[in-house]
Design a protein around this nucleic acid. Structure first.
Lengths: 152, 152
DNA sequence: ACCATTCAATTAACATGTTAATTAAATCTG
DNA sequence: CAGATTTAATTAACATGTTAATTGAATGGT
């Protein structure tokens, strides 16, 4: 029985033309450009996202942080715990709603932010040069559209 | 001096226009289309990738599987362990190289594959309809290019 | 053949992804 | 107002991501 013929006729879709795999590989390559900066400041990718989202908003409840940083609630709970222990963020209680946890940057978090942001921007600039500004823009638009349409 | 430009250079980049975040969100949305099928067959996303890669090749050593499925070696070691316990794959020893582990589908793995592949293809077809065939193709090309150029 | 080096796989340790279950506070409804 | 329902956050349990260290098997040079 010829395995090659069988493969050609009823083989599963090639993994290379699979959208999930393509997204995964692209993200993997892209993140290589940010890892040195993250490691230098001793934060994980997800911790950095939380810090940035909180910084952008000034103060934000956990649910909104999770949504904007694309992190699930259980993960965020653990991330908050470690970031609070490291005094990078602080948690407050919402006066209106006793269930909510409101997050804001702590002083050490502000310091880290100001040190790391330029390096993050530089990494993104580097990507823009490698990929090309127009292609990058096009890709961002396509990704947003896919996120909307595929998200059901 | 334009205050918008000045502000833009000193504030963190908006998370919405960040390529890593865009890739993450897009992937998240895309995966929603596959999760029901994965859950139905009781495999994780990564287990499914391993099964498909092994099936595509017939038999493959672990390093190649890791590379093609975009899974790191330590993760693959654990995945192999569980897939072997569930008798979905089998491991053989490379006669030439005593270090290598060669993987192939076990009978139960073949059964699972043939049941799940049509559903996986259907999910991908559904995506193609939601996004549009040309855009999907364009996106796949862009992602491949980014994976190449950004990857160092 | 010997030793150092390289390489494949595994293990270890910690962080996150993912779904289900739980707890406490808010809200709805009769 | 009381009871049922919803909601935000947490906890639990298991799987994977990630880096460093380890083990055993090839390889290279001498």
């Amino acid at each position: 029985m010829d395995k090659h013929l069988k493969q050609a006729s009823e083989k599963p879709r090639q993994t290379r033309r699979s959208l999930p795999m393509a997204l995964l590989r692209a993200r993997e390559s892209v993140m290589k450009n940010f890892r040195p900066m993250l490691e230098k400041h001793n934060v994980t990718e997800q911790q950095w996202r939380v810090i940035r989202v909180v910084a952008e908003a000034g103060a934000l409840d956990a649910t909104e942080v999770a949504s904007r940083a694309s992190i699930l609630a259980p993960s965020l709970t653990r991330i908050i715990k470690t970031l609070e222990q490291r005094k990078l963020i602080k948690r407050q209680n919402d006066s209106k709603d006793g269930r909510r946890v409101v997050l804001a940057l702590a002083p050490a978090g502000e310091v880290l932010l100001h040190k790391a942001v330029p390096e993050s921007l530089a990494a993104h600039k580097g990507l823009e040069e490698k990929i090309g500004g127009d292609k990058l823009m096009l890709l961002l638009d396509l990704l947003d559209e896919v996120a909307l349409r595929a998200g059901n």
